[in-house]
Computed example of a mutant assay.
Amino acid sequence: MTTPRTEHLVLPGVLTAEQAVATVHGILAAQREDGAIPWFRGHHLDPWDHVEAAMALDAAGEHAAAERAYAWLARHQNDDGSWYAAYTDGEAALVQDRARETNFVAYVAVGVWHHYLSTGDDAFLDRSWPTVRAAVEFVIGLQQPGGQIGWKRADDGTPTEDALLTGCSSVHHALRCALAIAEQREEPQPDWELALGTLRHAIRSHPERFLDKSRYSMDWYYPVLGGALTGAEAGARIREGWDRFVVPGLGVRCVVPNAWVTGGESAELALALWATGESDRALEILQSIQHLRDPESGLYWTGYVFDDGAVWPRELTTWTAGSLLLAVAALGGHEATVAVFGGELLPLGLDTDCCA
């Protein structure tokens, strides 16, 4: 294995340089030769978490490994631009879940833009453009008249009109990255700009257009992490849910009232806090989940049931490690990660307001 670059991955109370190397090597050890990054060896791969782990590899300077991950996606993309929700671990990559979830499909745009900003590789962007374009067209094809995007298309082709706030917030982020790619290539996409604007308005102004998943912490912070809420609105939303979801010294609950904190949600909240200028609180959150670190592998347990004092499930997942590395990279000033998750330079699309 190569020696990862750790200058942006060292954070007091979170990662030393040696620990950062171990965590990156833990993800690399799980990656298959064909580029696939399953949750862990023997478990399935889903496209969203695969991309998150690939972005973490880019943040560590492991660009060849990250590029293999994106090549895997290009090879396995369906004719309609989608990917299935889950694939078995193994050379055959058999389909395990045949649903095609819109936020899973859209996220390739975030990863491709992050890789380009990390490497400056124009040839990679050219190769990836057809993949990104087809994925975005699949996703906006499920957009509803109110701007929200149905969360999946079933295996028989039936679209699901129900929309999820977390998923749509992630799609919002992905559409901004897709438009950045289009701008870089000088290929205007006015339909994407309109889709982005109407989606943002739905997220900001119409909670009734989404299924009620308010018990889940992701529905709390994802409108901020996905860039739909910024400034004072973002700060107010974070304050509103803080006491419900944050367990001091342990991390972030996945769902209330369950006594279960999870590493992925905690690291993502830290990213959202950093994006709103709350770097000190972001650091505290990342420090609070170091009890989930496995010193042998450098990876992180998915979660911890604090009423029972038990790690659960007994899974060391690449995406949990990936989310932590990305949060650390943002706080450490890694330029590509800052640009992608800070969002200041990402396109905003067309402003729309159905309420005007």
Rank of each mutant, 00 (worst) to 15 (best):
A20I: 05
D191S: 04
A234K: 13
Q77K: 13
R200F: 00
G120F: 08
S169Q: 09
L250A: 13
H76T: 13
T3K: 11
G167F: 12
D49Y: 01
L324A: 02
A85E: 10
M218Y: 12
A59Q: 06
H173I: 00
L250H: 03
V24D: 08
D49R: 11
H114W: 11
L179C: 08
G35F: 10
G13H: 13
L199Y: 07
L125N: 08
A202M: 06
R185G: 02
V224C: 02
V311I: 14
V95R: 07
P248D: 12
P248S: 06
Y304V: 02
R281H: 07
D308M: 11
A339I: 10
A234N: 11
C168F: 05
V110P: 00
G264K: 04
L196Q: 01
A17S: 15
R200L: 00
S323V: 01
N78K: 11
V110Y: 00
I203N: 07
L28N: 12
D58W: 04
L348Q: 15
T230W: 04
D79G: 04
E315Y: 12
A59T: 07
G277M: 13
G241F: 13
T88M: 05
Q31Y: 05
A36K: 11
G61W: 06
L345S: 14
T160W: 11
L117K: 15
T160K: 08
E186S: 13
A66H: 07
W312I: 00
A134F: 00
T198R: 15
G120T: 13
D351W: 04
S266W: 02
G26Y: 10
E193R: 11
W301S: 03
G333A: 08
Y70L: 14
R200S: 14
W83R: 02
L15Y: 15
A275S: 15
Y221W: 14
T102Y: 09
Q31C: 08
W260G: 01
A329G: 04
P188Y: 09
H115R: 14
N103I: 00
D49C: 08
K213A: 10
L57C: 12
L229C: 04
L199P: 06
E161P: 07
I203M: 07
E101S: 01
V252F: 05
A64M: 10
V340S: 06
S297K: 09
D280W: 04
D294C: 07
P145H: 05
A232Q: 13
T88Y: 09
W83N: 02
V24F: 05
I203S: 08
G309W: 14
L142E: 03
C254P: 00
A85G: 12
T352D: 06
C168S: 14
P130Y: 04
T262C: 11
A163M: 08
V328M: 03
H43F: 12
G81E: 03
G349N: 02
Y216D: 14
G342A: 08
L211V: 12
G147L: 01
V112Y: 00
E344D: 14
L57V: 05
D294T: 04
A339W: 04
W72T: 07
S118G: 09
R314W: 03
H76F: 08
I285V: 15
E62L: 10
G90S: 14
A69R: 12
W113E: 01
E193C: 06
